[in-house]
C-alpha cells in the first residue's frame, strides 16, 4: 500500500509552518506585540482574520510569530538531544561490555523520571524562559537518541564492512564516525522528525504552565493559557492557537512516518 499521501500532506504542512515562521520574521498583518486597547476582544473580521485578544493584539500575527517560537525551541531542543544522545549511544556500542551496561542504566534512570515533572523542576532550578525550556526538552530527548544510536550501531558492528574496517586496523572511534554514523543517519533523521513533533507539543505544554518563552515573545502554549478564562466570551483566542499546534504536530508526524517508510521499504508493510 502506498503511504505517499501521508508523506505529501506531512511535508506540505511542515513546509507551510516553516514558511509561516519565516514569513513572520519579515511581515505579519499587525505587530504581534502591539496593543490596541479599543480593538480588544474583536471577533474574526476582514481586518483581523483570527480576531484580537484581551490587549487588542492580532491573533493571526501571534499565531504566525508563535510558529517561530515553537519551531525554533523544538529544533534546538531536538538538536541538543541528538548532540548528546547520538555520540553517547555510539560510544556505548563501541565500548561494549560494562561501559555499555552502565550507559544504558543511566539512560534508564532518565527514562524512569516523570518527564513533565522533571521539566518543571528543571525550570524551577534554572528559571523559566525559552532557553531553559530547550534544555528541559533536550535532556529528555537525549536517551531516546542514545538508545536508537546504540541499538542500530550494535547491529552494524557485526556487519562485514565494519569487520573489514577493523581488520584494516581502524580504531573503534574512527569506525564509529566513518562507518557507523553515516549508516544510522537516516534512522536518526526519522526519529528526529518524530521527536520534533513531540518537542512542539512539549513546548506548548511548558508555555501553558508558564515555563516557556517569556512574554512578549509570542507562544502558542501561552496564548492558550491566557485565553482559557476568556474562551467563553472570545473563543477565537483559544481555537486558532490550538489548531495551529494540532496541524503543526500532525504535519511533523506524517512527515516522520512517511520518511521512515521511504527510507526503509521493509518497514513500509508494517507501519
Amino acid at each position: 500500500m502506498s503511504r505517499s499521501p501521508g508523506l505529501l500532506v506531512g511535508a506540505g504542512l511542515t513546509l507551510f509552518f516553516a514558511l509561516l515562521a519565516l514569513a513572520s520574521l519579515l511581515w505579519t498583518p499587525f505587530d504581534p506585540t502591539a496593543f490596541d486597547v479599543p480593538a480588544r476582544l474583536q471577533a474574526p473580521s476582514a481586518a483581523h482574520w483570527f480576531g484580537t485578544d484581551h490587549f487588542g493584539r492580532d491573533v493571526l500575527s501571534n499565531v504566525m510569530a508563535g510558529a517561530r517560537t515553537s519551531i525554533s525551541v523544538a529544533i534546538v531542543a531536538v538538536g541538543l538531544g541528538m548532540a548528546i544522545g547520538v555520540p553517547f549511544g555510539l560510544f556505548a556500542a563501541a565500548a561494549g561490555g560494562a561501559v555499555d551496561e552502565w550507559a544504558m542504566r543511566a539512560s534508564d534512570i532518565v527514562f524512569a523520571f516523570p518527564a513533565l515533572i522533571l521539566a518543571i523542576l528543571l525550570t524551577a532550578v534554572l528559571g523559566p524562559g525559552a532557553l531553559n525550556a530547550v534544555i528541559a526538552i533536550g535532556v529528555f530527548n537525549a536517551p531516546v537518541f542514545a538508545r536508537l544510536a546504540r541499538g542500530s550501531a550494535l547491529s552494524l558492528w557485526r556487519r562485514e564492512f565494519v569487520l573489514a574496517a577493523r581488520v584494516a586496523g581502524k580504531g573503534r572511534a574512527r569506525i564509529s564516525v566513518e562507518h557507523i554514523l553515516p549508516n544510522i543517519g537516516d534512522l536518526v533523521i526519522v526519529q528526529g522528525t518524530i521527536q520534533f513533533s513531540l518537542g512542539v507539543l512539549a513546548e506548548a505544554g511548558l508555555s501553558y504552565v508558564g515555563l516557556g518563552a517569556a512574554p512578549p515573545t509570542p507562544s502558542w502554549g501561552r496564548m492558550l493559557a491566557e485565553s482559557q478564562t476568556i474562551a467563553a466570551i472570545a473563543p477565537w483566542t483559544a481555537i486558532f492557537p490550538g489548531l495551529a499546534i494540532v496541524l503543526c504536530v500532525l504535519g511533523l508526524n506524517l512527515l516522520g512516518d512517511g520518511l521512515r517508510d521511504a527510507f526503509d521499504p521493509k518497514l513500509r508493510a508494517r507501519r
Partner: peptide
Amino acid sequence: RRGGEFVAA
C-alpha cells in the same frame, strides 16, 4: 503577569 505585558509595552 498580565500587568507586566502591559507595562513592558
